[in-house]
C-alpha cells in the first residue's frame, strides 16, 4: 500500500442477485491508488471495471471486503455521507456525457458549485476557469444539443474538474468520440492531472485511452488479472506519437 493512497481496496467482492441465484461481478479485488495517479481499470465488457468504479464513486457498495476512498469506508457510509463525499471530493465523467440538456454549458459546469453553495461571483470565476482549461469559453451560452460530441465531453470534464476534486472517475470517456476528439480529451485530462495533481481513474477498454495511462490495472471476469506501470517519459512519447498520427 502506498503512503499517500487515496483509494485502498481490500478483498472486495460484489455480487448481484439474479433471480434465485446471484452473479459475482467482482471477487477478491485488492488495489491501492495514490494522489496524482493517471491510471485505468482495463478489461473487456463484463470484467467488472464499471462496477468497481461505481463502488469507488460511492454509487454502489461492496458485498464484502473494504473500499476506502479518501479515508471513507464506502460500505459504511450513509446515503447522506456518500452524497457529501461525491459532492465535495469526487468528479465523474461518463461515456455519454450525462449533461443536463436544458441547461447551458455555463449552468452545467456551475451545477457542482451550486451544490457546494458557493457565492455567485466565486462560481462564475471558477466556471470560467474550468471552461478555459477545456477551451470552451466561447460556448458558455450554448446548450448540449448544440455541441459536438467532443465539446460535450469537454463540458463534462469541466464539470468534473470545476470544484478541483481529489479524484476523477471516468467511465469509458472516449467511447462515443472519434480519434481526434479522443486525443484532445485525453490531452486535456492529462494536462489537468499534471497541473492540478488530480487523481484520475478510468474504466476503459479503448486502446487510445490505454496508451495514455501510467498505470494499467487489468481485470478479467471480475478478478484482478495483472498490472502495468509506464514511465512518464514513455507516456509523453506516446502522446507525441498519437498526435502525429492524428495530424496525418
Amino acid at each position: 500500500m502506498e503512503n499517500n493512497a487515496i483509494i485502498t481496496i481490500k478483498d472486495l467482492t460484489k455480487t448481484f442477485p439474479m433471480g434465485k441465484s446471484s452473479f459475482t461481478a467482482l471477487e477478491g479485488i485488492n488495489l491501492s491508488l495514490g494522489t496524482g495517479e493517471f491510471s485505468g481499470l482495463i478489461g473487456p465488457s463484463g470484467s467488472g471495471k464499471t462496477t468497481l468504479l461505481n463502488i469507488i464513486g460511492s454509487l454502489d457498495t461492496p458485498t464484502s471486503g473494504e473500499a476506502l476512498v479518501l479515508g471513507h469506508s464506502i460500505g459504511e457510509l450513509s446515503a447522506k455521507q456518500a452524497a457529501r463525499l461525491r459532492k465535495e471530493s469526487l468528479g465523474f465523467i461518463f461515456q455519454s456525457y450525462n449533461l443536463l440538456s436544458v441547461h447551458t454549458v455555463f449552468e452545467n459546469v456551475e451545477f457542482p458549485l451550486l451544490l457546494l453553495k458557493m457565492g455567485a461571483d466565486e462560481r462564475k470565476k471558477m466556471v470560467m476557469d474550468a471552461l478555459e482549461w477545456v477551451g470552451l469559453t466561447e460556448k458558455v451560452k450554448s446548450k448540449p444539443p448544440q455541441l459536438s460530441g467532443g465539446e460535450c465531453q469537454r463540458v463534462a470534464i469541466a464539470r468534473a474538474m470545476v470544484k478541483k476534486p481529489s479524484l476523477v472517475l471516468a467511465d469509458e470517456p472516449t467511447a462515443n468520440l472519434d480519434a481526434a476528439n479522443s486525443h484532445n480529451i485525453l490531452q486535456t485530462m492529462l494536462k489537468l492531472n499534471k497541473e492540478l495533481n488530480t487523481t484520475f481513474l478510468f474504466a476503459t477498454h479503448d486502446e487510445k485511452v490505454i496508451g495514455y495511462l501510467r498505470r494499467k490495472i487489468y481485470l478479467l471476469d471480475g478478478k484482478f488479472e495483472k498490472e502495468e506501470r509506464v514511465g512518464e517519459d514513455e507516456v509523453e512519447l506516446k502522446e507525441v506519437e498519437s498526435g502525429r498520427r492524428l495530424s496525418k
Binding site: L59, A79, A83, R86, K87, F94, S96, N98, P112
Partner: peptide, 13 residues
Amino acid sequence: KEIGTYIALGYTR
C-alpha cells in the same frame, strides 16, 4: 440518466 447524474454529482435520492 439525469436523475443518476444528480446523484453522482452529490445529491441524495
